[in-house]
Computed example of a mutant assay.
Amino acid sequence: MNHNDHAIQLCSVSRSHKAGDSAVTALDRVSLSFPRGTFTAVMGPSGSGKSTLLQCAAGLDRPTSGSVTVGGTELTGLSETKLTLLRRERIGFVFQAFNLLPALTAEQNVALPLRLAGKRVAKARVREVLRQVGLGDRARHRPTEMSGGQQQRVALARALITRPEVLFGDEPTGALDSRTSREVLTLLRSMVDREGRTIIMVTHDPVAASYADRVIFLVDGRVNGELTGASADDIAARMTRLEAVPC
């Protein structure tokens, strides 16, 4: 694979945070590639660096050392303005909290990233994305008139409106019951299979992770192996072993 086949590449990325007089290393020389058109889950015990990895890969946080490349653009040298533009135009986010604006309808929530970017909002495009997530008939409903699963799908449509190169999910099914969670994960899986999207998802749920092509495990800020095409049971067993490792 040449580097253009990768949506995101991390090369020896470290991230330290100051804690009093000492520094805490959240990521320790992590090198990873995320090929285009793949679904990757990132797992690890609490405090293993999962969220920091996601934030560095998405350009939300700057690594202390190492480099992050998004589709051929190296992020390290970018100004805050250029970084903001890159995130806005090329990266989508879905979080555990749906972060919808309650006063706005589904279609207004979905159109928000375009409005914030000062771009023209094509109503047909908004409707198309809502249809993609199975909410074609709920465009005029407000969040309070929807279930949790429907709200998360609106959040997903909002993330997709800019046609991002990579979609990041931080526990995207964390607030949903298991049936609704499966619906959202099936939708994410089909976006990878049918539309060739690239998805990177942090999760603590082995069932959610089993929808991904591969699962990367982090322990103490380092990559601790990966599984490809694994079942939820295999993933759960691996997590149990990781969490049992004495500190």
Rank of each mutant, 00 (worst) to 15 (best):
200 I>M: 09
80 E>D: 15
227 L>G: 09
114 L>C: 04
154 V>F: 11
56 C>P: 10
19 A>R: 15
46 S>L: 02
13 V>G: 01
207 V>Y: 06
31 S>T: 15
69 T>C: 14
247 C>T: 13
147 S>N: 06
62 R>S: 12
222 R>E: 10
76 T>V: 08
161 I>P: 08
227 L>I: 08
235 I>G: 02
4 N>Q: 14
156 L>W: 11
219 V>H: 14
66 G>Y: 07
123 K>H: 13
160 L>R: 02
5 D>Q: 14
18 K>G: 13
119 K>S: 11
9 Q>P: 00
16 S>M: 13
88 R>Y: 01
83 L>W: 01
137 D>V: 07
26 A>L: 10
214 R>G: 04
225 G>L: 05
240 T>G: 02
182 R>L: 01
109 N>H: 11
243 E>M: 15
162 T>L: 01
82 K>Q: 14
218 L>M: 05
238 R>E: 14
220 D>L: 10
70 V>G: 04
109 N>T: 14
45 P>S: 12
216 I>A: 01
246 P>E: 11
42 V>L: 14
59 G>A: 07
187 L>N: 13
132 Q>Y: 00
30 V>M: 04
151 Q>E: 11
160 L>I: 02
224 N>C: 07
94 V>E: 00
91 I>P: 00
122 A>V: 10
137 D>N: 13
209 A>H: 05
236 A>R: 14
